[in-house]
Design a protein around this nucleic acid. Structure first.
Length: 485
RNA sequence: GCUCCCAUCGUCCAGAGGCCUAGGACACAUGGUUCUCAUCCAUGAAACUCGGGUUCGAAUCCCGAUGGGAGCGCCA
């Protein structure tokens, strides 16, 4: 195979959401697998809705995921420009060619007429397509009419009785009847191209070899094939990916999480998680591997392994996988990643003189096996940075009465005082275990841990004690004793 | 309504005619470790949509039904 050139062509009318990100990833994996080029092209001919802020979001999302394009508006490339609005000359040439060759024509029906026609056809159980009588109009006459009538559009003169067949890399042979396509629109004006026409021109101009896109584009393909033929362009290979579905099995929409990829970043997901998880949505390496690096994904990628049916985005599994990636990080790495979230939650600028980097790292090491999302660190670790606030009842283990709790806490205070500094977790554990002997661990340990953390759920008391140190631990026991007295 | 696509545990995937008593992962349940939780370990429950063919043999091939999805713009 010659080196492939693939592209994603999002319109900057919305954020980079999961669906687009998955399409981008598969294009990226395929390009990297065969040493090809991954192009980002911006489809911004819809001037009213396109917005540069969305273009920036798309680019930022790709950067964060680590699947940056080789060619794009930001970086340029050998087939610039990469924005449709900057390629107008090409469209004009192509439209003029179709018009003079008689494969395109001017249509003077009003929008209202078209709507009425569609309704009537559907009512009559006929396919709702527009077979336009203006297709027969003499080209010169039509040209003159455009000067007087403002309301016109340029359509493709769809050939009748044609069977359009193409091979899809994922689905095999797909076939369509040209009679069911209608005379579809290709431009509003000679210099205002519409989607199906513009992509064909763009893909040819950029030497795109493989069009890898969502399954929702299958019905567009026969139209594009007809245009490619009329313009004598080269036909690319096609691969239509299954859709990513929401929990209700419908196409992922704003309603269920078609939110920006950046939202996942803000929620504390790791980019490795997203890439790995999205890759496994509709694809597998063919064996039981699940946790896979960028490199492994690239090496294992192939179209034959892509599923044909849609896949539901399961957040529970995403959370599990994120936990796996979090646990695989070194404590230093994780600390850097988690620091912004911690600071946002606490309103502090850590590390500082009270809480140096070393202290924070010890906290993170304790929380690491418990974290599913980085953003959880704030509430999970708050008690390491300020005294906990809790109800007295939290100190009660099973059926202990107040005096028993008091005895237990005083006992802990004594033990804490008796341990020589500097503390190590094993020293602390040994001291407590020796003191407990054959007695109940819970009676001593539960009130202790509650006093330290102020939480029902937390890491073990010995670890917390060691991180907090003798002074802070002593203070917290003192506070707990006050509550019970 | 018309066209097209799809169909294995609740979810994501494995399965390319005999290796299937259908495998893995998430989630779920139970047990072990444990003061609590998480991690970790073990165990369990859980699926080939249905009906016809083809074949000695079908989850796998063919046809049909059913179900789900997508598209049908002067959006992309």
């Amino acid at each position: 195979m010659s080196t492939p050139r693939v592209r994603i062509a999002p319109s900057p009318t919305g954020n980079l959401h999961i669906g687009t990100a998955r399409t981008a990833l598969f294009n990226y994996l395929f390009a990297k697998r065969y040493g090809g080029s991954f192009v980002l092209r911006i489809e911004d001919t819809d001037l009213l809705r396109s917005d540069r802020k969305y273009e920036a979001d798309i680019f930022e999302g790709l950067r964060w995921l680590g699947i940056l394009p080789d060619e794009c508006p930001e970086q340029g490339g050998p087939f610039a420009p990469y924005r449709q609005t900057e390629r107008m000359a090409d469209y004009v040439i192509a439209i003029k060619k179709l018009l003079t060759e008689g494969t395109a024509f001017y249509c003077f029906h009003s929008e209202a007429e078209l709507v009425a026609e569609r309704q009537q056809l559907m009512g009559a159980k006929r396919p709702p397509i527009h077979m336009c009588e203006f297709r027969a109009l003499d080209a010169r006459e039509a040209e003159i009419l455009t000067e007087t009538k403002q309301d016109y559009i340029i359509r493709f003169k769809t050939p009748l009785g044609r069977k359009i067949v193409f091979h899809d890399l994922i689905r095999g042979e797909l076939s369509f009847d040209s009679d069911l396509l209608g005379d579809f629109s290709i431009a509003k004006r000679i210099d205002v191209p519409l989607y199906n026409f513009a992509v064909v021109v763009d893909d040819y101009a950029m030497h795109i070899t493989h069009v890898i896109r969502g399954e929702d584009h299958i019905p567009n393909t026969p139209k594009q094939l007809l245009l490619i033929e009329a313009l004598s362009f080269v036909v690319p290979e096609y691969a239509h990916l299954p859709l990513i579905l929401g929990p209700d099995r419908s196409k992922l929409s704003k309603r269920h999480g078609a939110t920006s990829i950046i939202d996942y970043k803000n929620a504390g997901y790791l980019p490795e998680t997203l890439v790995n998880f999205i890759a496994l949505l509709g694809w597998s390496p063919g064996d039981d591997r699940e946790i896979m690096s960028h490199r492994e994904l690239i090496a294992a990628f192939s179209f034959e392994k892509i599923q044909k049916s849609g896949a539901i985005f399961d957040v529970k599994k995403l959370d599990w996988m994120n936990g796996e990636y979090i646990r695989a990080k070194s404590v230093s790495e994780l600390t850097e990643l988690v620091l912004p979230f911690l600071n946002t939650h606490l309103g502090l600028a850590l590390p500082n003189s009270d809480f140096p980097k070393e202290y924070i790292k010890r906290v993170i090491a304790l929380e690491q096996p418990r974290l599913k999302k980085l953003a959880e660190i704030g509430s999970a670790a708050e008690y390491f940075f300020r005294p906990p606030v809790y109800e007295k009842e939290l100190l009660r283990w099973k059926m202990m009465d107040d005096s028993a709790i008091l005895t237990s806490l005083n006992r802990s205070a004594e033990i804490i005082n008796s341990i020589a500094e500097p503390w190590s977790p094993t020293d602390v554990e040994r001291a407590f275990l020796a003191a407990i002997g054959e007695g109940s661990k819970g009676e001593l340990l539960w009130p202790l841990r509650a006093a330290m953390s102020g939480r029902k759920i937390s890491p073990g008391p010995f670890e917390i004690l060691t991180v907090l140190g003798k002074d802070k631990s002593g203070c917290r026991i003192g506070e707990a004793i006050k509550k019970c007295s």
